[in-house]
């Protein structure tokens, strides 16, 4: 029992990201309002960002910016231990994912503005009724 509890506590970052991600996925599938779907999409993407960033964390390590290097230039020999700094790679990757998220959000909002212009509503079922009536 304590084993299970300690596993759950040791990996709590994964449980949080999975929960958030599934809330986002649920919103994207089940919600009727197009903007709520976009909100779900953002949650979905943000959960993945959370997941990646949590991979990079290391116990006892600090942010990945080398210390004592201001103004010395590169001729100073400094000894850097990998254990002292967190993993920089996930941060880099997530900068990209954030940008992609913003870009997708922008395009999605632009599309919903176009849809609203045309149908005067953002509820999916109302739009579908309007389309059916036009036929």
């Amino acid at each position: 029992m304590t084993d299970l509890v300690s596993t759950i506590i040791a990996k709590y970052n994964y449980w949080i990201y999975i929960t958030l991600m599934m809330i986002g996925l649920y919103a994207m599938i089940a919600k009727n309002n197009l903007i709520k779907k976009i909100v779900g999409m953002s949650m979905f993407q943000t959960a993945i960002i959370l997941f990646y960033v949590s991979i990079g964390v290391k116990k006892g390590a600090t942010i990945p910016i080398l210390e004592y290097s201001h103004g010395h230039g590169h001729d100073t020999q400094l000894v850097v231990h990998a254990a002292d700094y967190v993993n920089p790679l996930p941060h880099v990757l997530m900068l990209t994912a954030i940008v992609v998220g913003v870009a997708t959000l922008g395009v999605a909002l632009a599309l919903s503005i176009r849809i609203y212009d045309r149908y005067n509503t953002l509820e999916e079922d109302e739009i579908l009724t309007q389309i059916r009536e036009e036929k």
Partner: peptide
């Protein structure tokens, strides 16, 4: 979480941390 010996922390990142400068 925050395991210093995970593959992600031991495979590529030490190179970046130690060689970047």
């Amino acid at each position: 979480w925050s395991d210093p010996s995970s593959p992600a922390s031991t495979y590529l990142s030490p190179h970046f941390i130690e060689k970047t400068m």
